[in-house]
Design a protein around this nucleic acid. Structure first.
Lengths: 265, 265
DNA sequence: TTCCAGGTTGGAATGTCGTTCCAGAGTGTC
DNA sequence: GACACTCTGGAACGACATTCCAACCTGGAA
């Protein structure tokens, strides 16, 4: 241990897997998925590729580690409290206003219902993906490339426990939890992609103007071919992302209660 | 026009945007997302990069065109009949057995309910994504990068019309349709990614063995940290992808009826 | 028939990427 | 003081998307 202290004096900060992953997350957050290159990493860490490859097998593993780190933090925060706090992150992007979720911060709430718990975890993931848009793609890849890794079980467990608490019959646990996770990741991923493209495309144009453009484009579609899309063009103009996401969660929750009906409704 | 006929005699088949997109889809289907390179394209089409770039601006546009072509076909087929036929495609991958969907092929069904219609369209998209796993990523990118393009409105319109037929109040059209589309794309994307990784990882190992491996890994997790995931490890072993996907759709549909309750239930 | 303009082609060249290789520096042990 | 080990970073490689350009083909004008 004493030797370690010596060791770390060689450089102001010794290179380590954690420091690399940390730098990778920062690069991903600031420069997007394409911003994470080994060249940029070596510059940021003032080192060479060989040094990085000593700690990390390849880019895929690095992406996996970055995903794992962020998700672990998000799910942990989400498990402890009502998760709303997870929205106030370092980057502070995209999500604001209207938090109809669990409760005010600071006050200890009455024991939350499983439904509220699920909303909380879902919002935690939603916010994490909103803050780190690259998570969407990565999560989808990770959930399938290695379902034996730590990411999948973490998310699945977090949602699944609350599903069990909903009195869903055991035979439906897997199906119901899968549906919830799929909706959450699908919707959150879509939202993240939206934010990313709204941020990138025309510089200086904010989300409102972006949505406005889309709404206008939808409103000018062929009335014969796209009557419905034209009709909802206005609705999308005023919508709040988090609210709409939660409405979707509630829809699934309502479906669960309706399908596996039990006592209180 | 007569001149056009002459023109195409120059080569056995003249290079055209359609032929390029077609070749791109084939490459994507057989070799995966990373299989689509301009090198492979030039070989397959027996030409050079310059020729391709004459018809297509860049790789992104090519991916967009490929996505558009496949989705257009899928949604169209899905609109006409019960969509189950869409599963028997050229590649014939991934989806097999147990098709608990709308009806037998050939017989003209009694007028389907909006619910059945939605199941049909959803299955059409599910099968399309299962046959073309690269669609999942591409769709997510496309839905957000250019919601003014043809892809988004096509899907949205297809689902939205049926939502309207469900007597959902107009104020909720956008929210409900979004939730459905998000679930469908999320679940289908997950499934596609699963199939892709099951196909690639250990050659000669089929889906069943893949799922078996995951199930076993989940069964061996820490009982304290992952009690739920351990509990459902067995359930995932026997599950059918399409069935589970449809169960999720039904969950959302049930949620819609429960939330916006009206006459028949 | 000859010639030309412009649409079309494919090969060569460019710059960036992930990754590998390797000579050597730093550190603890005999 | 020499050895073995972990760790470093610069140089080099092959693959990629993309650009450039000299040559090609084709329909119409001369």
């Amino acid at each position: 241990m004493a030797t370690r202290t010596r060791r770390s004096q060689r450089r102001t900060e010794a290179l380590s897997r954690e420091r690399i992953v940390e730098a990778a997350v920062e690069l991903l957050d600031t420069a997007g998925e394409s911003g994470l290159t080994f060249r940029a990493l070596t510059e940021r860490l003032a080192t060479g590729p060989g040094a990085i490859y000593w700690h990390v097998a390849n880019k895929d593993e690095l992406l996996g580690a970055a995903t794992d780190a962020v998700i672990a933090a998000a799910v942990t925060v989400g498990t402890v409290a009502g998760t709303v706090g997870a929205a106030t992150g370092t980057v502070g992007a995209a999500t604001e206003g209207s938090r109809p979720a669990t409760g005010e911060p600071g006050t200890t709430e009455p024991p939350a219902s499983p439904q509220d718990d699920i909303r909380g975890v879902a919002l935690g993931l939603f916010d994490a993906i909103a803050r780190h848009p690259w998570l969407a793609t990565q999560l989808a890849a990770q959930l399938s490339r290695s379902p034996w890794g730590t990411v999948t079980p973490r998310i699945f467990e977090s949602i699944g426990r609350r599903v069990r608490a909903l009195d869903v019959p055991e035979s439906s646990w897997f199906t119901v939890t899968s549906a919830l996770v799929h909706y959450i990741l699908g919707a959150a991923g879509q939202n993240a992609a939206n934010n990313a493209s709204a941020r990138s495309l025309p510089p200086g144009v904010d989300r409102d103007r972006f949505i406005d453009t889309v709404s206008r484009a939808w409103g000018e579609l062929d009335p014969d071919e796209y009557p419905f899309t034209r009709a909802v063009a206005d609705q999308m103009r005023g919508h709040d992302d988090r609210e709409q996401f939660l409405a979707g969660v509630d829809l699934v929750l309502a479906g669960i209660t309706a399908t596996h009906h039990h006592g209180q409704e």
